[in-house]
Design a protein around this nucleic acid. Structure first.
Length: 575
DNA sequence: GCTTTGAAAAGCCTGATCACGAATGATCA
């Protein structure tokens, strides 16, 4: 994806926040947010556009187009610099704390001169907020809890951002003369949902040029340590990068070692010891003679331990060693196996792109089928009506099969009410090819009520798929509390699939829940939940999560041919 | 600040929930 779009999106979002904090017209702040979203979701690279062309993007008018053009030309945006000078960056960080918005942030800054999360935490502990108007006992509790949430995730970086940085660094280092191999390892290679630090590996005869190159990268803000075998830096975004340069003959062993996880490595080393071998980042060695017996490739290293090559996503010591030694590893679902996306939006509700544009882009991805699932009326801010959705259906039927033969399914994303009921009467729902049902409100009903609610939704014959089942937002909101084993059992019993939502801040269900649900025989759908064209590509993160949950093509309904998928959607349990 | 409607001005992502403090404003989906 084009980076300039993301940069401008971030900048406009920052400006929107600063406008909201400094007060004034709320609609102005919202206008910048809308423009930020439109530019972030714009399919083409904006860096080649002039102000006139920028105005063609929806929600970008004269004023914003000029500001963006200024940024693309000069690298800065004057109005943002002005506001930054008035409001310290830390004040904006405060509104990342759940339950704390722009108004409270400004009050904290103006009355108590608090301009960082750390200062706020200290002020709460010192009970310094008690005298502030609008900050009662409960608000302080919420702030305390919010800071805790933020800190749990704060040290780790979301998968896509880590991947961007890693690919950039790997690209740069691969171009350095003498580079035989270069790759990222660690939790990123295992596709964990967040990444603590980046492990980058180079195979080369001499290490100095690579250490030099890493320290000199534009992304590098600070050098933490610099040696001949290992160098650590921190990027401007605060991500630590550890570079290790190994001799080419040790490549496979080093890759295996630095990919981890810790648990997996302990198991493989123990396995080596039982075979009279020693496993390290330099190779597999015979304990008696000290001779290296394998090290060039991962396959070689695993083979020497009596194992097949194990995909990195499985290396968590969650039974992969036993499976590899016994019944065999699962044939993991891949992105290529996905025949269609079953949860996507258009600009009829909160998506950015029109139906035609989304369909065109989906066809470009080679899908055999594609479902459009805009929001239903109970999410009132989306202002959906029967008339609107029927008009969409008519247009969708016209487009069906006209783009590389891709078949279109008309669906909707329903809201599961507190009692487990969903929008629209049953007769009307029967007219959809596919209904996704999701929680969008009432997140703290208590475990028993939440479980009943979800089970009830599964039992609805019109509901085919539960969207982002726990509704967690990584680093911002924990998932809802329910007896998930009971919910999974209901899914299996009723033939309701669970979504693996690929939005990088959701990845919901997560890998561990997938493992539990799969054990009960639940089927899954890996969907992008795309709200614009670039989001369709997020599917890879969903597939990574599904793989971490050991899913095969057989487990994932949107790898199936359309005829089989349609049988599954009849919910008669025959799949 | 953008878009739409009608040519300058109105309307915009609404409505529930929560916390504070006694009717309202902030926050979030």
């Amino acid at each position: 994806m084009a980076r300039p779009n993301a940069e401008v999106e971030a900048l406009l979002r920052e400006y929107a926040d600063l406008v909201a904090i400094t007060g004034g017209d709320a609609f102005r702040a919202r206008a910048y947010e809308k423009a930020a979203r439109a530019i972030g979701g714009y399919p083409a690279d904006i860096s080649a556009l002039d102000a006139e062309e920028l105005r063609q993007i929806p929600n970008v008018g004269r004023s914003i187009a000029d500001k963006v053009a200024e940024y693309l030309r000069t690298g800065t945006m004057a109005v943002v610099e002005e506001r930054r000078a008035r409001i310290p960056a830390g004040v904006r960080e405060l509104i990342a704390i759940p339950t704390l918005g722009p108004k409270k942030a400004l009050r904290l800054y103006e009355d108590l001169h608090i301009s960082s999360v750390d200062q706020l935490a200290a002020a709460v502990e010192a009970d310094a907020l008690a005298d502030l108007k609008g900050f009662g006992e409960k608000t302080q509790d919420n702030i305390r809890h919010g800071i805790e949430l933020l800190r749990q995730a704060g040290a780790r970086v979301p998968l896509p951002r880590a991947l961007d940085t890693a690919e950039e660094i790997v690209g740069e280092l691969s171009a350095v003369p003498g580079c035989e191999r270069c790759a990222y390892a660690g939790s990123l290679r295992r596709m964990r949902e967040t990444v603590g630090d980046l492990d980058v590996l180079v195979a080369a005869g001499r290490s100095a040029p690579f250490m030099e190159a890493l320290c000199g990268l534009p992304a590098t803000a600070e050098v933490i340590a610099r040696g001949t075998k290992k160098t650590s830096v921190r990027t401007g975004e605060g991500l630590q990068v550890d570079l290790r340069v190994v001799p080419p003959r040790s490549w496979g062993a080093a890759l295996q070692y630095f990919t981890g996880s810790k648990g997996h490595n302990i198991r493989t080393r123990t396995l080596a010891v039982h075979r009279g071998l020693k496993l390290s980042e330099y190779g597999v060695f015979d304990t008696g003679s000290g001779e290296s017996v394998a090290s060039r490739t991962e396959e070689e290293v695993y083979a020497r331990l009596g194992l097949p090559w194990i995909p990195p996503v499985l290396r968590e010591d969650r039974g992969e060693i036993e499976a590899a030694l016994g019944e065999g590893l699962p044939e993991l679902v891949t992105e290529r196996d996905i025949r269609g996306d079953l949860h996507t939006h258009t600009d009829l509700t909160d998506g950015l792109a029109p139906l035609e544009v989304m369909v065109e882009a989906a066809a470009g991805r080679g899908y055999a089928y594609y479902a459009v699932t805009d929001h239903a009326p109970d999410l009132s801010m989306q202002r959906m009506t029967k008339e609107k959705v029927l008009a969409q259906r008519e247009r969708l039927r016209e487009l069906d099969g006209t783009r590389h033969g891709m078949r279109l399914l008309h669906g909707t994303e329903l809201n599961i009410g507190p009692d487990g009921e969903v929008d629209w009467p049953r007769e009307f729902l029967a007219g959809f090819d596919l209904c996704v049902a999701s929680l969008h409100s009432h997140f703290d009903l208590g475990r028993a009520a939440m479980t009943r609610r979800l089970v009830r939704a599964c039992e609805n014959p019109c509901v085919h798929l539960i969207g982002h089942p726990t509704t967690r937002l990584i680093g911002r909101r924990p998932g809802v509390d329910a007896d998930w084993d009971e919910v999974f059992a209901a899914c299996a019993r009723t033939g309701t699939a669970l979504e693996v939502n690929a939005q990088p801040d959701r990845l919901d269900l997560c890998d561990e829940d997938i493992l539990r649900a799969r054990a009960q025989g639940v089927k899954f759908a890996v969907n992008s939940d795309a709200h614009c064209v670039p989001h369709l590509a997020h599917l890879r993160f969903g597939v990574g999560t599904a793989q971490r949950g050991w899913l095969t093509g057989e487990d994932v309904v949107n790898t199936w041919p359309l005829a089989r998928l349609r049988r599954f959607l009849r919910k008669d349990g025959r799949g």
